[in-house]
Amino acid sequence: MSPDVLLEHAPLFARAAVVTVRIAALGILGALTVGLVCAAVEHFRVPVGRQAVRAYVELARNTPLVVQLFFLYFALPKVGVVWSGEACAIIGLTFLGGGYMAEALRSGLDAVDASQVDGALSLGMSRGAALRHVVLPQGVAVAVPALTANVIFLVKETSVVSVVALPDLMYVAKDIIGSSYDTREALTLLVVAYLVILLPVALGARALEGRWRRAGLGS
């Protein structure tokens, strides 16, 4: 393995890392939003909405991202919906991640005993206030480890977006392997690039979990 070759290709990976991080960040943000709405619908047992959410969660969690991407990118244009590769990647990640985030948040909310809501109401709190001050803080605290695991999972899932011609880390690695046959260097840089992105996320997640636990909210 030559250090010169590593240095030569490093800038390409830096540029590709920007694409990976952008897609991951927007996709995760979307997934958290979708997840929160779905979890609330399930937690409050909204009729019909609840069944729809169940169906969505199963669909999202039981189909691979690469299949979802192919569907968004190659199937939708046949009915007149043409989204760019990047839009497909972000929507796909939101769709997949939304299912996982919904499950994590729902289990958190369900972990808060119903008697606590009764208690809050008996103290004169409104339903909204009970949700905001009693259920959500405790529920989210319980869900934090699952949520951070989902975040790391979703960042790693972005490695398939090259199938819709997005120049992410994996795409650049394949480029270098194909054009210069610097296979070892390209794959080493690929591993390093994902670690550079994910190690801070993992460490941040651990710190966050510790803080929520110390707050004594999640049992």
Partner: peptide
Amino acid sequence: TEVTNALLDGR
């Protein structure tokens, strides 16, 4: 097949 589909879709 992917590249020809992309062409047909105007990508």
